[in-house]
């Protein structure tokens, strides 16, 4: 959704009014202050060791507006500049690696969850031209980037499962947990189309299972998930809607379930696409916390395309 200036101002005004008296209104909102409020209000104990925090920009800068996104790509940063929004809250790294910077202090651990996937030590080369150009763009435009991952993921209910269900209008079909929804019967093909349309997917969606199989019991695993999650969830549902799983793990497991005669499936959305609705919810939450400025969700979009 693109808001024009007037709608933008009115949305911000409503948020300001609705926030009540719990948050001081007359101080200038700086990046550091915004970070402090996030830390104090996140609702889970702040971890001593965390990747969350200010990853780029000046903590003393005053915030003109907040953009919340899954990945702070250049397209997202450029939109923020065009729309006079200088603080970006990003779920995923701004500088391409778990440690969000060029210097991997410990190459053994710098890879994070997907360690090894990039082959070799984690982190971008300090003289990498894309890294330097992005850093320069952030500095020249007075942007700041806050990473909010560990703690947003730790909240209950799981904002990513909830966000995905809301985007798909499945919340009324919730079946006992935030990861399970019993929806009216649909073919896997039609379900994949519905997901692609509602989540604005281009080529990122990949499906295992018979397109014509009728399914109704949905399990959701947004983000990255390991085999153990699929082995637990697939027996109690017809199809798993996942973000990213590995081809020799949950993908093969789903293939084998199908070959064993079960009417099952696995739909992979891509990690980033699957996490976007959870960051839309994050924008809604931040609105109540940062009433001085406008807070909006900037979808990062599906990175992938496919030739005809």
């Amino acid at each position: 959704m693109q808001l024009n200036r007037r709608q933008f101002a009115s949305t911000a005004g409503v948020a300001l009014f609705a926030a009540g008296s719990s948050v001081p209104q007359n101080t200038t909102l700086t990046v550091t202050l915004a970070m402090d409020r996030i830390r104090q209000n996140i609702g889970v104990t702040w971890k001593e060791s965390t990747i969350d925090g200010v990853k780029a920009g000046d903590g003393n800068a005053s915030v003109s507006g907040v953009a919340v996104t899954a990945v702070a790509t250049m397209d997202t940063l450029a939109r923020a500049v065009r729309e006079k929004t200088n603080l970006i809250v990003s779920l995923e790294p701004v500088y391409y690696s778990h440690n969000d910077g060029p210097a991997a202090l410990n190459p053994q651990t710098a890879g994070g969850r997907g360690g090894g996937g990039g082959r070799g030590a984690g982190g971008i080369a300090p003289d990498d031209p894309v890294f330097l150009a992005k850093k320069d763009f952030i500095a020249k435009n007075g942007l700041a980037v806050i990473r909010l991952s560990d703690h947003w993921r730790a909240r209950t209910p799981d904002p990513f499962a909830l966000g995905l269900a809301q985007t798909m209008t499945w919340t009324k079909y919730r079946a006992g947990s935030d990861t399970r929804y019993d929806i009216p019967g649909i073919t896997i093909a039609a379900l994949a189309d519905d997901l692609a349309n509602k989540l604005n997917v281009r080529a990122g969606i990949r499906v295992v299972g018979d397109p014509q199989a009728q399914v109704s019991r949905i399990g959701v695993l947004p983000g990255v998930s390991a085999l153990v999650a699929s082995v637990k969830l697939l027996p109690e549902c017809d199809v798993i809607v996942a973000g990213e799983t590995r081809e020799w793990e949950s993908v093969e497991y789903a293939q084998d379930a199908v070959a064993a005669g079960q009417k099952k499936g696995l739909i992979m959305l891509g990690r980033v696409v699957s996490e976007e609705p959870g960051m839309n919810l994050c924008a809604g939450w931040l609105k109540t916390l940062l009433p001085e400025v406008s807070v909006r969700w900037f979808p990062s979009g599906d990175s992938y395309w496919r030739p005809a």
Binding site: E92, Y96, S97, R113, G114, G118, G270, S303
Partner: peptide, 12 residues
Amino acid sequence: PEADTALDLSSY
């Protein structure tokens, strides 16, 4: 793998 990894090639 996407995003939070040793090097997020797609975002790069």
